[in-house]
Design a protein around this nucleic acid. Structure first.
Lengths: 142, 142
DNA sequence: CCTAATAGTTAGTTTGACGAACTAAATAAT
DNA sequence: ATTATTTAGTTCGTCAAACTAACTATTAGG
């Protein structure tokens, strides 16, 4: 029974996470940015200026893929590249003020969407979710 | 703002869901199926036989997109289409035994990945997570 | 009936992913 | 010190998956 519990838990958690992310995805449309670009921008905002390789690893894509995403972000004035003073092969990519503002607005919309739904739950249920968020983070650790 | 307000909860839930999905995503690679096809197959397994339109709506894609996904699943012998007896325009799509077996194998691999991590939690914490999965599904409802 | 709506497919386009091949720079080896 | 190797990033070609527009076939409404 314990084995079945685990199977069910893994399946249910997986399905629930997918549905939850899908539900809030609509808020991202309004930024005018695609999900991969918005996500890369988010890493720049929260992770600070970094190399292309680091950014690619954070987003679990290859260097060429990230190279193109960054080029598009740069063309849109949302990110900027500068030479790495310590390594002339390298670049340091950072978010611009415009990029930061756009990311923040998108994030607020996404969270607003979730908050509206959170209002449907009781206080006890919200507390339960808050505790679970911590547990999920623990599960996701390597 | 309190530490436990709903903005924090929304932020934590969103981040936790993303990290959790990333952590188990590697298990799906071994199915040999892409994420969209695996996801569509999952809807067929859990939602039963249904029309292309229903499947497209469930996956939040357009009919042409789903038409191609189903065609590929059919070519791989994982799903089957039959005419809808009640509407000659319509088709009913259902998972095959092979498709069901593949989904089950994927689910087992995903669990295997999570198992070590689930072991870090107490039984009480696992119960908490299971309950939270239900709440998350509720949140995701439109 | 005939017209409008619906189910699904086909055609063409865009985006984002990859690997392979390239340039340039840094590091290791002899 | 010179050469070889590795590393960082880009460009190119290709593919999957998403969309819209337009098509066929069928059903439903006036």
């Amino acid at each position: 029974m314990s084995r079945n519990d685990s199977l069910d838990l893994a399946t249910q958690l997986h399905a629930a996470a997918i549905r939850l992310l899908r539900a809030v995805r609509v808020a991202d449309d309004e930024t005018g940015l695609s999900a991969p670009k918005l996500s890369a921008l988010s890493v720049l905002v929260f992770g600070g200026p970094q190399s292309l390789k680091a950014l690619a690893r954070a987003e679990q894509v290859t260097a060429p893929t990230m190279s193109k995403l960054v080029a598009d972000l740069e063309a849109a004035g949302l990110a900027a590249k500068r030479a790495d003073p310590a390594d002339k092969r390298g670049v340091v990519i950072q978010v611009t003020a415009k990029g930061r503002a756009l990311m923040e607005a998108g994030r607020r919309r996404r969270l607003a969407l979730l908050q509206e739904r959170l209002g449907r739950l009781s206080k006890a249920e919200r507390d339960q979710l808050a505790a679970a968020a911590g547990l999920m983070a623990k599960l996701a650790q390597p």
